[in-house]
């Protein structure tokens, strides 16, 4: 599903190399210290930055030189996931069409997904009238409306309180199962990985230094966390 073939990326003093292969429907966590290149990896896959060399294949298609909107991925960022001056309905609808001219069937799928993430009563509200959790639900709902098979999450829940974060994680897991999405998620919390992603990558200084089942990694990892980071 996702293949990174000897990807090289240079930026200022930093240089990064990624080689990676993820199967369809897999759920993978990315952990590592700040500045290690976790977000860079996601940005490369999403197409916000271009690799110096190498090849990115999504869904069997070479997307290395395609712009973000032509790639089979939807991404949630750390911040600025919503247009604060637009309503929930408009924010979600922009996931379907940039002109927001929606057909009847598109509208009904929007209402379905709003119902699924529990936002039906909030469609006419503005983001500042919502709680932090609700806002991320809107963003997640929009990602689903984009109908992309790969979901990239760049710590979107890090500003939420722990209980809410777990709530959102179960929602993400549920969604991934229902729509058989491939998930790649940056996190700082091991227990998040343990909860929903069977596989985990550890990144340090622009390289993947470990790639294994989350359960097997967890012991080494907690050791690694206390010693290195």
């Amino acid at each position: 599903m996702i293949v990174l073939n000897r990807i090289n990326y240079h930026y200022r003093q930093q240089s990064m190399q990624f080689d990676l292969s993820i199967a369809k429907g897999e759920r993978v966590a990315i952990i590592g210290p700040s500045g290690a290149g976790k977000s860079t990896l996601l940005n490369l896959i999403a197409g916000f930055i271009m690799p110096t060399s190498g090849q990115i294949i999504l869904n069997g298609l070479d997307v290395t030189h395609l712009p973000p909107n032509k790639r089979a991925v939807a991404m949630l960022f750390q911040t600025n996931n919503l247009f604060t001056h637009l309503t929930v309905y408009q924010n979600m609808g922009l996931g379907i069409a940039p002109s927001l001219r929606l057909s009847a069937s598109e509208k009904s799928s929007l209402f379905d997904i709003a119902d699924k993430v529990g936002l039906t009563d909030y469609l006419q509200r503005y983001p500042h009238q919502l709680s932090g959790g609700q806002r991320q639900r809107v963003a997640l709902a929009r990602c689903l409306l984009q109908k992309r098979p790969v979901l990239l999450l760049d710590e979107p829940f890090s500003s939420l309180d722990p209980l809410l974060r777990l709530d959102m994680l179960s929602l993400v897991e549920d969604i991934c199962r229902t729509y058989s999405l491939t998930l790649l998620m940056v996190t700082h919390h091991l227990e998040e990985a343990q909860r929903i992603t069977p596989r985990t990558l550890v990144i340090q200084q622009g390289e993947i230094i470990a790639d294994n089942q989350t359960d097997l990694l967890i012991n080494d990892l907690s050791h690694l966390y206390t010693s290195t980071f």
Partner: peptide, 14 residues
């Protein structure tokens, strides 16, 4: 909204 509008293909008049 640079990244967001790129990924949603919101350009030009839109």
């Amino acid at each position: 909204y640079h990244c967001l509008s790129q990924s949603l293909n919101i350009t030009g008049v839109n």
